[in-house]
Design a protein around this nucleic acid. Structure first.
Lengths: 207, 207
DNA sequence: CCCGCCATGTTAGCGCCTCTAACATATGTT
DNA sequence: AACATATGTTAGAGGCGCTAACATGGCGGG
């Protein structure tokens, strides 16, 4: 973050680390204007290069955005791992912690968060994004299994992890889209996450 | 649907019902290419008019998309009402039915569904969209209350409706973004919806 | 009945955008 | 030193959103 001089005039013809700087400019713009209103031109202006320069590093606009999305997914996963460290294994607190990170990330970086999921066209083909997402989901599955006292993931764990994921995903989007007025979400986030973890993982099976 | 001649050459200078036809062309294009890759120009080509014509009916591109989003929200709400008619009042089946409509709509018309939520910039100011969304949500709240045997909505009903909404919303997006492989969502939609309704509304409070 | 108004269409064109081609410059390998 | 390659530049094609100015035709009042 702090090693990106951004708009300092460069002394040499060549740039040094244009690719990284373009990704950072893209990230900032995506947050500022939203993924829709992002333009390559403006990223170039921010980075202080001509509008043709990015095409030496990226195939097209989509690839620039994809780089930002991938970095976002890795950052989100990293934050989860760090948060998980603070809680004892096999407890609901760890489930709650992951949900908290998920929603917090969405609220803190809604632009990048939208990118991580919205760009569904190209995601399928480019496996890094899919793999990183799968890895993060595997974290949830493992945590659910451990709440049962097991280290192997069974179908019920998959199911519960899927329920949790859908919920926090929906909650995140509703929040950043401004659909959640006070009246619709009457209690605070932390309590909600605890409630959901309890309902999904804490209780016994209900069939 | 069948009263839109689409690309028939029109005999007269004037068009007759260009606005409606542009909305329909927009809807189709949004489904075909996704909300991102929609262009006013192409909608004009489909409707057989010049690229300046839409601006006699819409302020800008956003307003065209908003018209499609609003129509979508009303259609979704209508589908819910029709589906609800098939089930006895005060039963979990009615909760499940609403979830089914929500997800089915998302899967059937992912482009419009994205539009209904994605365009968060302009939603806040233009109240029709917000109101329609609120109306639909109120339906869920009322249904939850009635499962308790009450006709007045209390905070616990709000809370449960919110949980349900977040879940189906997240599930819908994960589905249309292709994030739900077989391994991640091991059982079929109907069973999932029943399970969630049971966990959220069916069970007693868990605090 | 005709005439003028206004709604709604058209063409022309500006400015911005993405992306490519052709050229320029730095870097490092031999 | 000379060349190959990586990475920057300028110029420009082609598409898009939107506006201005003009054209057409339906409709209501004299």
């Amino acid at each position: 973050m702090e090693n990106t001089p951004q708009s300092e005039k460069r002394d040499s013809y060549h740039h040094g680390d244009l690719r990284a700087q373009l990704v950072e400019a893209t990230r900032i713009l995506v947050e500022e204007k939203g993924p829709d209103h992002f333009s390559v031109s403006e990223a170039c202006r921010r980075a202080g290069v001509s509008t043709a320069a990015p095409y030496k590093h990226f195939k097209d606009k989509q690839e620039m955005l994809r780089a930002v999305a991938l970095a976002g997914m890795r950052r989100q996963r990293q934050e989860m791992l760090e948060e998980l460290d603070q809680y004892a294994p096999g407890t609901l607190n760890r489930i709650v912690a992951m949900g908290r990170v998920y929603v917090r990330f969405a609220v803190t970086e809604p632009g990048v968060f939208r990118l991580m999921f919205g760009l569904s066209d190209t995601h399928g083909e480019h496996s890094e994004l899919v793999e990183t997402g799968d890895d993060t989901f595997a974290l949830v599955q493992a945590e659910v299994a451990r709440c049962r006292g097991s280290d192997t993931i069974e179908e019920s764990d998959q199911h519960q992890a899927f329920l949790l994921w859908s919920f926090v995903h929906g909650l995140s989007f509703l929040k950043i889209d401004g659909k959640l007025t006070e009246a619709k979400m009457p209690i605070d986030l932390e309590t909600v996450l605890e409630d959901v973890a309890q309902r999904v993982v804490g209780a016994g099976n209900s069939e």
